[in-house]
Design a protein around this nucleic acid. Structure first.
Length: 307
DNA sequence: AAAGGGTCCAACCGCACCGTG
DNA sequence: CCACGGTGCGGTTGGACCCTT
């Protein structure tokens, strides 16, 4: 360490790269003596050839007690991150405060990985031929699979009637790609009856069991609630995709909104929709018969996709 | 068994904010 | 008010590891 200092007391150029156990120990000792502050003094006093920022980062992300490094995000943690990201945006530090033992870096990495994965799925879906309204039964593996993507799926309660999804075409394609992957997963025979896609719309609390985000754009009714793209961008939150029989909703009048939706980032996330039933006070008074069937199905087992 | 591609995650970078002199 | 140093935060990168083919 000291040997790395230049003559004259000026610290050598700060070292970069992986930390050694010795460096960690020096950093721990510094924190024991001074608390988690005065990071710059570590370099200034020649304790470590690391700049203050690097020291702070090392402490925050790896050395401070109580961290849950090395274990994957639980479903609950993932749900919280997704939920909070929809509410507050990329405020990783804020989000991480809600997750015991997780750092902003952890959350950021989790989200980044997830985003890349979904972008790839979306891209893989993009060149697909124009989507037919009927669901493909292709068993070809459209997308790569990794252990962390292994899924178990609820049985399709709609049988062949759930042959289409009402969503912008690009999103439809992404859904199809996702579905292809899921349905061909050896561990996961079955199909997803519906997806929840984070395109920009909040899902009703009555459906998700989760509090709806406060939003002036909260749709009051409609089978597929749509808002203009600009509002979607301002207010990213889950959008519900409802399955329906072939054709019926294709004609559904999304008057004027289809184009806006189609231009959105196709699909940001997929999750199986939580089981739910129709509530008396629901405002879905214009549901198609097929969609009503959907809600009439007995609740499937709880969720299932592990990202 | 090897190559290629994907995932994970530690660490760096640049910028913004804040307190202090 | 301003300059400056320290700190915090979000975005990005690079490498190790893992999985699939």
């Amino acid at each position: 360490m000291v040997a790395q200092r230049r003559r004259g007391g000026r610290p050598a150029a700060a070292r970069k790269g992986q930390w050694t156990a010795e460096e960690d120990e020096v950093l721990r000792r510094h924190v024991r003596e001074h608390g988690p502050r005065e990071w710059s003094s570590i370099e200034a006093r020649g304790l470590l050839p690391r700049n203050g920022k690097s020291c702070r980062l090392r402490w925050v992300n790896k050395l401070q007690p109580g961290l849950r490094t090395g274990c994957k995000f639980t479903q609950e943690e993932e749900r919280m991150v997704i939920e909070m990201q929809a509410k507050v945006g990329n405020k990783w530090a804020l989000i991480s405060k809600q997750l015991t033992g997780r750092t902003d870096n952890d959350v950021k990495n989790f989200w980044s990985t997830r985003k890349k994965k979904l972008a790839r799925m979306s891209k893989a879906a993009a060149p697909a031929p124009p989507p037919s309204r009927r669901r493909s039964s292709s068993s070809s593996r459209a997308l790569p699979s990794t252990p962390t993507e292994s899924c178990s799926l609820m049985k399709d309660p709609f049988q062949e009637s759930s042959s289409s999804y009402h969503v912008g075409e690009s999103s439809h394609q992404a859904c199809t790609a996702m579905e292809n992957q899921l349905t061909t997963d050896a561990q996961s025979p079955g199909r997803l009856p519906a997806y929840e896609c984070s395109l920009g719309l909040p899902a009703p609390e009555s459906l998700t069991g989760l509090p709806a985000p406060e939003s002036p754009s909260w749709p009051s009714s409609g089978e597929l609630a749509l808002v203009p793209a600009a509002e979607c961008m301002r207010n990213p939150a889950p959008l519900m995709l409802y399955p329906a029989a072939s054709g019926d909703m294709a004609s559904a009048d999304h008057s004027g909104y289809g184009d806006e939706l189609a231009c959105l980032q196709p699909v940001l996330e997929f999750q199986p929709i939580q089981p739910y039933g129709l509530e008396d006070d629901m405002v879905f008074d214009e549901l198609s018969p097929a969609t009503l069937d959907f809600f009439d199905q007995p609740p499937p087992p709880p969720p299932l996709i592990k990202w």
